[in-house]
Amino acid sequence: MRGLLIALTGFSYVVVLLPILIVVVTAFSASEFFAFPPKGFSLRWFEAFFASDSMRGAFSRSLQIATIASILATVLGTMASIAIARRKGTLFNLVQGMFLAPLIFPAIVLGLSLLIFYKSIGGVPDFLGLVIAHSVLGLPFVVRSVTSSLLAVDPALEEAGQSLKASPVDVFIFIIAPLIWPGMLAGGIFAFILSLGELNTALFLTGPGVTTLPIEIFSYLQFQGGQLVIAAASAIQIFMIIAIVLIAERLIGLKRIVRSES
């Protein structure tokens, strides 16, 4: 039984991680074409990646969008959670459902809807449009993790704060935020990573000159050779995500991010 369990776990790891590992390893290949195991070691594909204006531009744009969208999602999601966590009743269940809806609906539907919506209100700059889309996608993760953090905070603490002359804003800054920040950070990091790799809504909302890295990789694959530049791009994304997760792990512990629980 125990042996079977270990075998299954090992198999799952291989299925999940091996393809990623292959991409990362081939990114360091010295050869012109894809081959595994790679022949020689070089950083030429990383150089090629950063030498390409469109790749570099998309990369930095993706970072900007992910940063702004994850901050927006964290702020809005935390506010929503505070409204939801302390109240009961059909109305607030409905509100909670609305905030969690982007988890259930296909992102491609959201992309199309937002495209039509932006057009109907006379157009929105592509960058802003992407930020809004990614904020919406990140919201449910923030709401989930912050709500569960909030439920672990004794409501009497808020009243204790008020009894000690703290205004509602002071109560949040000095009492609530210090107790729920791991949940806020976990939700924010999730939203950031999600935005960085997001393809579905970006397909609808990117325009000429305003692409994100996943879109750039996608179109590069379709229209050009040089697969290994893509491998390098993927490797860079993977390294970034690993770095973020490691930092978060140091700060709050990985379990809380993965489970979105406190």
Partner: peptide, 20 residues
């Protein structure tokens, strides 16, 4: 008048000390 502008102090049933 909201609680934080009233002149009282309170001891709560489960103390409600700030854990952090």
């Amino acid at each position: 008048i909201v609680p934080h502008k009233r002149d009282f102090a309170m001891v709560f049933q489960n103390f409600a000390l700030f854990p952090h």
